[in-house]
Structures are given as C-alpha cells and as structure tokens.
Design a protein around this nucleic acid. Structure first.
Length: 631
RNA sequence: GGGCUCGUAGCUCAGCUGGAUAGAGCACCUCCCUUCUAAGGAGGCGGUCUCAGGUUCGAAUCCUGACGGGCUCACCA
C-alpha cells in the first residue's frame, strides 16, 4: 500500500500539486491509536512545497489518492497528518499472501553474497561462562538472520589452542595432579569431570602456585636474599625499591606491580612453562602428545556445552594452524610501503592520520603479534572460500579498537572486502553484584546456568503445564526447550551493543517480555487449531480492529528481518515477536474463535491464528529459540 | 589525558533514517477463568527522556559542550 501511494505521488506530483515530488519527503508512519485510520502520511514536508496550510495540502493529497486508489476508503487530516482508512479486502488479501508463503519474510536462500560469521572462539583453558552465552547466542542468531535475508552463511570459530597459557595448564596437570592407585593422573574418565572443567581446574591451579612462588621470591628479596638470581634482575629490583622513596601511594602501587612481575618471571614455574612452549613449537613428541590429549578433553567438554546451547559451526579454525599466517603479508606490505621497520627490526603501521596510533605488527625478534595473525587469518579465509565477500566477527566491545585497526590495515593492504568486514561488538554481561570476575569466583558457569534454567522450567511446567500424556522423554525435551528458550530470549532481546544486566531471577521469569511468554502463545494457538480440525479458506469478511492490527503487524515481518540483518540485531526480531504476541493475546481474549457461529468469520480467525503461529515460529527460529506444540 | 561507547519510569529495557499526548515488562494496587491453554487479558500508579546550548514548522532522536558510567590506548592474547 505504501509503495502504491508513493508511486502514485511521484508520478502524479506535477499534475495535482503543480510540482515534482521528491521521494524523501514521502514519509509514512503508523496511525495513532486514538485516531481513525490505518496508515498515516506526514504532510509537513509538503507544506513548504505547496505554500499552503497543512490542512489544505492534506486535503488535496488525500482527495487525489482516494480517487486513484480504490482500497482507500476514506481519509482525514489532523494537524498535519493525513490518515487513510484502508478497505478490509486489502488486509484480507495481505493475510492471504502471508498464508500462501511458507517461509514468510525469508528471502530466497543463497540469493545474496556469502558471508562468514565468526563467534564463540573461546580460550581452551577456561570453561564457558555467561559472557560466552551471549556471544554464542548472538553469533548463531545473526547467522540465522543473515541466512533468512538470503545470504549464504558460513558459521565459524577460531579456537585459541596454543600459546603460553595452554602450557600453563599442561604443566600444572603434570606437576600437581594426584595419581590414583594405578599411577594414573586425573582424567575426565577417572574423575567424571567434564574435560574443559578439568583443564580449567589446572589452569587455576597454575595461577595459585605461581602466586605462591612469586610471593616467596619477593619475601626472600625483601630480606636481602638474592642468591641464584641474575645480577640484572637484582639490580632492577633494587632500583625499583629505591625509587619508592618519597612517592605517593598510587605510584608505589605501580612500582609494586612491577616488582611482582619481576619476581614472577623468576619463578621456576613460569620458566618451565616457557620451556614447554619452546618444545611445543619444536613439535616435541611428548609435549605434543600431552597437548593433543588435553585439548581433546576440552573439545569433548565444549561439544557438550555447544549441544546444550543448540549452536553449531560449519568450519573450525585452530590457532595452532594459523598463528604463523600473516607474516608474509607483512613482508609484502613492507614493500608496498604500508608498513615500515624501526631500527630494532620491529615492524609498524602508522595510523595517526586516521586518528589512531602507531601499531606494531611484527616484534623485533620477527615473531607475530595478535594483529598479524588476524590479518593472516582473514586473508586465509578468503582463499578457503572464493565466494566469500565479508566476515562478521562476534567479539566483545573491549576489542573495538583492535578491530578498527584490523579493518583499516586490511583496507590499506588493498583488500576490497575489507569494507564488508564487521565487528559485531557486544557489551559485557553484568551481574546484580557487579562485574563477573574469575578471581573473585563470581563467574557464572554456562553449564551450571543452563542446567539451572532447565530445572526451573521443569518446576514451572509441572505446576501449570498442559502435558498430560507426555512421555518422560517428551517432558524432558519440553523443559529443555522452555528453559533454553527463556535464557536465549533474555540475552538476545537487548540491543547487542549495550552492556546488559543479568538478573538470575528475571532470566527464568515467564511473564512479560520473555521467551516462555512467546512460546506459550504459540502452544496455545496450536492447541486451538488442533481443536478446530479442518477449516475453510479465506473469504471476504469484515475485520475487527483487533484483527486488522495483527495483519498490519504481520506484513511488516519481511522488513523487520531486513532491518535485523542490516543491523546485525536479534533484538529487533525479539521485539517484533513480543509485539505480535501481545496483539494476538489481546485478540484471543476479546474475540471468539471456535465458538464463532459465522463460519466465514471463524475460518478467517483460524487462518489468522495459524499465520501468527507460523510467524512466531519463524521469528523464534531466527533467535535459535524453539517453540512447543503444547506446554 | 586521547579515542570509542552508553545515560529514557523505583528496576530491566523498546523507541528505525527528526513527527501527533514518550512506550513495554518487573514491582505495587484493582478487576476478569462454565469462550477456545489464566505461563493469559483489562485497568491504575509511576517521566524535567542526565544537564546546558544550537539547528528545525517540529528534537528522546541530529550538532556542540558539560557531567556521570563502561571499554580501550602493550614487542599480552
């Protein structure tokens, strides 16, 4: 309808208004609830053009449109707004269109260019936590949204499986894991622990032991005991110590931190970890075996968590395979003058013209930094997928600067796809008690949280569900579906870029703007349709305001999908769904359906209900939320 | 200090490229289950859209500045 009006105005502008109409001044909006009409055209922009009063201009335009469009039944002009009332048959036709289209709102698959969505990308030393849940749900959902918008999408993650931190947990396991009667150290099998949890435990253990050894060294130094330490370290310590003289508290704290670092580097533990890294890089068989084994544990553990989350990947990248990438690109970039070398051999890029800093891309010893790898990995991916046109990185907003620099470097290197790379930056998830801090043990573990939410769903369902005749398995599936649906919806309904508060109690709430609220509406419609049995097709009937409102909202779904895709925002979908369900619930409560005696009206209401259920299901699919037939 | 980002009801959040009297949920208070699933619906209470300027017929929305929160500015990853 909007399109038709727009075309008509563009074409007929000169004829009725005596002047050409520019497309930008044609602005539609929803008609206010308390005013008659289904669609509103804003008149103000025309006023200037016509040099008449808003009322006069509105009347003129209204009369013209009514004359040419038969679906416009009437119009009125209220203080600069032209409100149209549109014929019921128009809305019924729209409903019919929705009804005939199976995946309503979705574009033809693979009708748009290929994109890659990277998400999750965890550190193998740390079990997944609440923050990862937001990351995973977001990444997965955005991938689904982009698919629905027609893009071909590759879901991927890069697994951070190498580096000094990995050696830390390996070393701690070798040194501190108790052995059982068979002489075996702890494994997921003999402890019953999830692999990622077991490895995480030793990573924590490493830190604990490291801290202990560091403190010992520091206290030895304080007592003047410097045996066995390199002279330059001792000298540095004494220099730092002397520099404390006359400084304020803050400065002293800074110096203390430096002294801690100094001592830390002298610990046998850290030195052993570094030796291990060197061995790993040299592919030492023993270290490599240990590395493979422990990583295997982690992957098994992560797999369980991913399954519970309901996310998946089309392709995995491992940092151990990619950490050397990018160095040759730097070499090329040096030739073309994008990078430059300092006297000590380190390589940099100057981004000061862009308002950023100088950024290191190769250390003076020639080794790569994070940025180098990221450049290499990106280029590598475009080799792996020749059809690829862009990458979306789902990474927390603490890396905003990093990605800004990364994209700028890629652009300067002349990759035309750099423009299509996007950092899907999301805010941290806070707890009511404040920030999550692993040191303070305030991290919310992903597995624990999911289990909690599912058991909560079980409790609620037992209390008020309609699940007579369900098998145990069906019941468990339902609990899973409701619990996870609630959690996903809770984390996705907020604009990704905003920092959000995670309130454990609210996350398992079922009233209001929640997953179960939406799921419930779906189940209720399904139950209604089941009771109705078969029913006829749409015929020309009158429409109540409640029905018209639903249809109006239904038909915006395609543009909502588009908006969500363009903004990489599942929140847009969530809010749309919530609005739809509210409209439907209102209708359901105030309009008889099955007991309606007029068959045509009953049919129409059933078709309407069916399509609301359909769109709810499609929208929830985009969030990775499943909807039940009964609950 | 520089850069980025956020600031809307007691709390958690919507408000798209400027449009009519700023919306939901939670919490609190009233009502509604012999009509189809009440995990629902109807209503009430609650706002100087952080502040100050500016642009405009018109600003929560755009611009500038201030204030407040967060992130970031490593030869760490």
């Amino acid at each position: 309808m909007e399109k038709e009006i727009k075309e008509l105005l563009l074409k007929g502008g000169v004829e009725i208004l005596g002047t050409q109409i520019e497309e930008e001044i044609i602005q539609f909006q929803k008609t206010r609830k308390d005013i008659d009409g289904d669609l509103t055209l804003v008149i103000f922009p025309f006023v200037k053009l016509l040099k008449t009063s808003p009322l006069e201009a509105g009347e003129k335009i209204g009369a013209f449109l009514k004359e040419h469009l038969e679906d416009i039944e009437s119009y009125n002009v209220v203080s600069g707004f032209l409100n149209f009332t549109i014929a019921d048959r128009h809305w019924l036709k729209q409903l019919n269109d929705v009804s005939k289209t199976e995946n309503y709102g979705f574009r033809r698959p693979n009708s748009r260019p290929m994109l890659m969505v990277e998400y999750s990308s965890p550190n193998t030393n740390k079990p997944l936590h609440l923050g990862h849940l937001r990351n995973n749900f977001l990444g997965y959902s955005v991938a689904e949204i982009l698919k629905a918008y027609g893009h071909e999408v590759i879901k991927t993650q890069i697994i951070n499986d190498r580096g000094i931190h990995i050696c830390k947990s390996m070393l701690a396991w070798e040194k501190f894991s108790p052995t059982d009667e068979k002489g075996e150290r702890e494994t997921p099998v003999n402890t019953g622990l999830k692999g990622d949890k077991l490895v995480g435990k030793y990573y924590v253990e490493f830190d604990k032991q490291l801290k202990k050894e560091t403190t010992e060294i520091l206290s030895a130094w304080e007592q003047g005991n410097f045996d066995n330490y390199p002279v330059e370290v001792v000298a540095e310590y004494q220099r730092l110590n002397a520099s404390k003289e006359g400084k304020d508290e803050k400065a002293i704290a800074g110096i203390d931190a430096k002294m801690v670092d100094l001592a830390k580097n002298q610990t046998s533990l850290l030195q052993e970890a570094q030796e291990m890294l060197v061995k790993w890089e040299a592919r030492d068989p023993q270290v490599y075996l240990l590395w493979t084994t422990m990583n295997g544990w982690v992957y098994d553990g992560f797999k369980q968590t991913y399954d519970a989350m309901g996310v998946d990947f089309d392709k995995l990248y491992f940092e151990s395979d990619t950490f050397l990438l990018g160095k040759d690109i730097v070499a090329e970039g040096m030739k073309s003058g994008v990078f430059y070398q300092k006297e000590d051999g380190s390589v940099w890029i100057d981004l000061t013209e862009e308002g950023l800093d100088e950024k290191l891309v190769l250390r003076s010893d020639g080794t790569a930094v994070y940025m180098t790898q990221d450049v290499g990995t990106a280029v590598d991916r475009f080799h792996d997928y020749p059809k690829l046109t862009g990458i979306i990185y789902t990474v927390g907003n603490e890396q905003d600067y990093h990605f800004k620099v990364l994209f700028l470097i890629l652009e300067k290197l002349g990759y035309e796809w750099a423009d299509n790379c996007h950092h899907l930056s999301y805010g941290m998830v806070d707890l009511p008690t404040g920030k999550m801090k692993s040191r303070e043990g305030t991290v919310v573990d992903a597995d624990d949280l999911m289990a909690e939410v599912v058991s909560q769903a079980e409790e609620m369902t037992k209390e008020r569900g309609h699940i007579e005749g369900f098998t145990t398995e069906e019941k468990n599936q339902l609990y899973q579906l409701i619990g996870m649906g609630g959690l996903k919806y809770y984390l996705l309904k907020v604009d990704p870029k905003k920092r959000m508060l995670f309130n454990p109690e609210e996350s398992i709430e079922l009233n209001g703007n929640t997953g179960p609220f939406i799921q419930y509406a779906h189940a209720r419609i399904k139950s209604l349709l089941k009771k109705a049995g078969s029913y006829g097709a749409l015929t020309e009937t009158g429409l109540r305001a409640e029905e018209k409102e639903i249809i109006k909202h239904l038909v915006t779904f395609p543009s909502v999908v588009e908006e969500a895709a363009k903004n990489y925002s599942p929140a847009v979908i969530a809010n749309y769904s919530y609005e739809l369900v509210k409209l439907y619930n209102h209708f359901y409560q105030s309009v008889p359906i099955l007991i309606e005696e007029d068959e045509e009206l009953k049919n129409m209401r059933l078709v309407l209900s069916e399509n609301v259920a359909k769109v709810i299901k499609l929208a929830m699919q985009l969030l990775g939320v499943q909807v039940p037939e009964r609950m």
